[in-house]
């Protein structure tokens, strides 16, 4: 495992910790899209079907369990926890995420590495992860101002994607038979979705001002 990949996994982990911190410390999930969180839970459940069939490393297995449990816990909290539930911006979080699930599944049936149960679900999870941030970005755009922890959550999530791209470039040059075009192209699409957010994030950071997304 190269340094970019490790740094990517760690920023991914940090993003989840920041989100958990926000929810636990403020007992609020305002600014967070439940739809995006539901999509991530589906992403991890679909992708890690191999948890019990393909052992890669202790690191891999532990991270998989952490991602599944944390994503399910966040959804549970936003749906069931009394105080957290009350702070949910339901009227701003109206993106029809079921369409994304359907479209990604159909696409996975058409484009996959192998036509097996696990491989189709793996491809589905890759496509769904690429677009799962959309409801979150739409919510932020609608609400305009973004609180610190929410901004940092999305920033770390975007950083994770950018580092994974560096990881693929590194692997492409260092591994003889590295061809992961499904993951790479989806990853590029996913990272491109953050471009706008990153632009305003760096602007606010440079000017030392609160993060504001123009409508």
């Amino acid at each position: 495992m190269n340094a970019f990949r490790l740094a990517g996994d760690i920023t991914h982990l940090i993003s989840i910790l920041v989100l958990l911190l926000k929810i636990y410390a403020t007992k609020s999930c305002s600014g967070i899209s439940l739809k995006t969180q539901e999509l991530y839970a589906v992403v991890f459940l679909a992708r890690y079907l191999d948890l019990f069939t393909d052992f890669i490393s202790v690191y891999n297995s532990v991270m998989k369990v952490v991602f599944i449990l944390s994503s399910v816990a966040i959804v549970w909290c936003m749906r069931r926890h009394r105080a957290v539930k009350r702070s949910y911006d339901k009227e701003l979080d109206t993106f029809r995420h079921y369409y994304l699930v359907g479209a990604c599944f159909v696409f996975a049936l058409l484009v996959h590495e192998k036509f097996t149960f696990q491989e189709v679900f793996w491809a589905f999870s890759i496509y769904l992860e690429a677009v799962a941030i959309i409801p979150q970005l739409v919510l932020l755009q609608r609400s305009g101002n973004v609180d610190n922890l929410t901004g940092q959550y999305v920033f770390f999530l975007g950083a994770y994607r950018a580092l994974y791209i560096l990881n693929w470039i590194y692997r492409y040059f260092t591994e003889a038979k590295f061809s992961r075009w499904i993951a790479c192209i989806s990853g590029l699409v996913q990272t491109a979705l953050y471009a706008d957010f990153f632009y305003y994030y760096f602007l606010s950071w440079k000017n030392n001002a609160k993060l504001n997304l123009p409508a």
Binding site: R5, R47, D50, I56, N60, M63, K64, W122, R180
Partner: peptide, 10 residues
């Protein structure tokens, strides 16, 4: 790392 069949990334 080695990557024969399964997906080694998260």
């Amino acid at each position: 790392g080695s990557e024969p069949e399964g997906h080694d990334e998260l």
